[in-house]
Design a binder for these strands. Sequence first.
DNA 1: TTTTGACATGTCAACTCTGACATATTCGCG
DNA 2: CGCGAATATGTCAGAGTTGACATGTCAAAA
Lengths: 207, 207
Amino acid sequence: MGARDGDDSATAGSTLGYALLSLLTRGPATGYQLASRVKAPIGHFWTAKHSQIYPELARLAAAGWVRAAEEAGPGPRAKKTYELTPDGLAALRAWLVVPPVAQPRSEITLKAYAANSGDPAAMAALYGGLAAQAARTLAEYEQDAADMRAQGMDDPAHPRFGNYAVLLMGLESQRVVQRWSAWLAASLDGGAPVPYPHPPAPRDNGY
Amino acid sequence: MGARDGDDSATAGSTLGYALLSLLTRGPATGYQLASRVKAPIGHFWTAKHSQIYPELARLAAAGWVRAAEEAGPGPRAKKTYELTPDGLAALRAWLVVPPVAQPRSEITLKAYAANSGDPAAMAALYGGLAAQAARTLAEYEQDAADMRAQGMDDPAHPRFGNYAVLLMGLESQRVVQRWSAWLAASLDGGAPVPYPHPPAPRDNGY
DNA sequence: TTTTGACATGTCAACTCTGACATATTCGCG
DNA sequence: CGCGAATATGTCAGAGTTGACATGTCAAAA
């Protein structure tokens, strides 16, 4: 028997399933809309193609975690608008407080590991380009964050506070990529040790 | 026909394949040793189980990118020590300068997206714990980095400069997780907006 | 008017990755 | 002497993920 049959209450879900439940806390949506929502800002840290979303929604529906309302759609098939059920919300809430263990995967860091097997000038150009790209993305995110603060989204009581939290993580990540890539490019370019530009520690906030 | 038959020179490899080639630039190793090497420091950004490594090594050998020397092993099978071939090094060098596109996946960020669907106290405890864990890891990495600098590994000419570069990325990542998790815990705990403790920008190094 | 893009849902083959199963020696510890 | 841990290599089922294929409407731009 499969690991996720919907006949009992203690059904386990995949991370993607919980990601979809999370998206549905923002309001009902079709599979197509979920595929769009999975782009910004959560898409910076979790993505899925529609080919994965549709079957997963079917499984969530079978488990009773989402409910679909059918309408005549533009294409040959009915359009289905999904919404979270109380069971689905309970499952999401239970999953939220489980400490995650998965490690990240980063191809740019993997390439850095083999940096001195590559041509130094080409590698420096690669990381210089990455730094420039990160700087552009960073500026964009900073604007987004300012807009969100103007809307009060930095208040944990705001229904889309999560969007703001995710964006801040994106911002910090881009900052790191920018700084680290620039340091690596300078190191490879100069052929001599370059001190890492560590920022001074910010004030301690008690955690 | 499969995508990675070894009969022609322009064979494409998987990221794991290149990761193994990268590890082999540090010297010949058995599959078992590669499974260990994939732990520190590169394991913070790329991991693989032996069940994935052994078949991949067989593919790399079939493509002529690695060469195996067989010896009598402790178990029922021969022990194989792999080394990089000139073709393998060329393939690695070509891969190194291709800008990566893959996006990271982060479960802790995904959970933050749905933060206000969870119990605030429980969520604050989760992120407070993550911040504490990151602080411990950070201290460990800072010690490692200092040791590496003492060995001259911050010089891009050092054969294990890549280890140092990867460790610095790990250090920065832990710093971000620590700061962001602590901010999130404080926000959820207080129930009111908490300014994000952005560090002042370090000096510009020209990139 | 044609064509492009958005809306909308699905299947399928192939590849990636994990966890469990399977086997066998050697070395150190109690 | 027995036990566990480390060394060492493999297979296999199943879950996760991607990219291509497939279908069809509607509105806006060229």
